[in-house]
Amino acid sequence: MDRFAHKGAVLAVNTSFLDVDAIAQATTCPYGVRGLHFFSPAHVMKLLEVVRGRDTRPEVMATGMALGKRLRKLPRVRQTYAMWTSWTACVRRIA
């Protein structure tokens, strides 16, 4: 990641399957990585998960929230390190 983005860039991961922290480890700036999960179909669904990684800085989360509002979504912070849909999928597999 560091070859393609300048130091201090924010990476917004749009996946509900991969762990945000696992992706953050691929960069020297894990504090700039967060998840943005748009629910499907994205053009209809208003909910947007803004997912905090273990090292994600507050200002990086704030930019995710601001982007969600700008896109007319309802951004909600997830304190866990993986997105809600991946957690629910895990629970379904275990049950």
Rank of each mutant, 00 (worst) to 15 (best):
F4A: 05
F4W: 06
F4M: 00
A5L: 15
A5T: 07
K7Y: 12
K7A: 15
K7F: 12
G8P: 04
G8K: 04
V10L: 08
V10N: 05
V10R: 07
V10Q: 05
N14D: 12
N14E: 15
N14Q: 14
T15L: 03
T15E: 07
T15R: 02
S16W: 05
S16F: 02
F17T: 15
D19I: 11
V20L: 06
D21L: 05
D21H: 00
A22F: 05
I23L: 09
I23H: 04
A24M: 01
Q25P: 01
A26L: 14
C29R: 14
C29D: 15
C29H: 13
P30Q: 06
P30I: 04
Y31S: 15
G32M: 09
G32Q: 12
V33Y: 00
R34A: 13
G35C: 00
G35V: 04
L36S: 06
L36G: 10
H37P: 03
H37W: 06
H37F: 07
F39N: 09
S40D: 13
S40H: 14
P41E: 00
A42K: 04
A42G: 07
A42F: 04
H43G: 00
H43N: 07
M45A: 11
K46C: 09
L47P: 03
E49R: 06
E49A: 05
V50K: 02
R52V: 04
R52K: 12
R52T: 05
R54M: 08
D55N: 09
T56C: 01
R57F: 09
R57G: 10
E59L: 04
E59M: 03
E59W: 06
V60H: 01
M61Y: 02
A62K: 04
A62N: 00
T63D: 06
G64R: 00
M65K: 06
L67N: 01
G68W: 02
K69E: 10
L71E: 00
L71V: 01
L71I: 01
R72H: 10
R72C: 06
R72A: 10
K73A: 05
L74Y: 10
L74S: 12
P75F: 05
P75I: 03
R76Y: 07
R76T: 10
R76G: 07
R76E: 10
R76M: 09
R78E: 14
R78A: 14
A82V: 12
M83A: 15
M83E: 11
W84H: 11
T85R: 10
S86I: 11
S86H: 14
T88L: 13
T88C: 09
A89Y: 11
A89K: 12
C90W: 14
V91A: 10
R92F: 11
I94K: 13
I94Y: 12
I94N: 11
A95C: 11
A95S: 11
